[in-house]
């Protein structure tokens, strides 16, 4: 009898493994959403900076714009929308809306467009191709600072072990 139970257990384990393998085989890499082409030729900051830090730039920008009246069109949410969103965009159709498209894909909820206009007012708008410097109080991440961060992380991990 005990032998039989072992057999059954082995078979069950085998079946489970086979099912998992089948499931994995059915999965392809997740496809990135179709993104609308930006209307300008060049972003206001290098793409890797914008990808990582656009929220930091916008946050710094909003305080300066609202409280101090310093308006920097290149680093404003209006600047993003003018270039990245189609004038005929709709919030219900994320494919037309660059910001919403990516935020839906990455499951990051943002409230910007509850108040801010979600499409450009002027159809012909293009932002300047020679953008201003980095946002006020904003340090661009360079390879040195990244290396420093990495070292700090490794040191911390070393301590934990």
């Amino acid at each position: 009898m005990p032998r039989r139970i072992v057999h059954v257990r082995l078979m069950l384990a085998g079946l489970l493994l086979a099912a998992a393998a089948l499931l994995l085989a059915g999965c392809s890499p997740v496809e990135a959403p179709q993104m609308m082409e930006a209307r300008g030729d060049q972003c206001v900051e290098p793409v890797e900076v914008i990808r990582r830090d656009h929220m930091t730039i916008l946050k710094a920008e909003k305080d300066r714009a609202v409280n101090l009246g310093v308006r920097n069109p290149d680093h404003s949410i209006r600047g993003c929308v003018n270039c990245h969103v189609s004038p005929t965009a709709s919030r219900d159709d994320p494919a037309t809306h660059f910001c919403l498209n990516c935020h839906t894909f990455t499951a990051v909820r943002m409230d910007c467009f509850q108040c801010h206009a979600d499409k450009p007012a002027n159809e012909d708008y293009r932002h300047a191709l020679n953008p201003h410097g980095p946002a006020h109080g904003f340090q661009l991440a360079d390879s040195k600072s990244l290396a420093r961060d990495m070292e700090a992380i490794l040191a911390l991990e070393g301590q934990e072990q």
């Binding site: 009246g69 209006r78 509850q114 108040c115 801010h116 206009a117 007012a121």
Partner: peptide
């Protein structure tokens, strides 16, 4: 709200009033 103007963000749950057309002044 929907279809706000780019220079005048307005939205549910906030208080608003005359801005002395601050977008024009700026």
């Amino acid at each position: 709200l929907e279809d706000q103007l780019p220079h005048a963000p307005r939205g549910k749950g906030t208080v608003e009033s005359c801005t002395l057309c601050v977008h024009r002044i700026d």
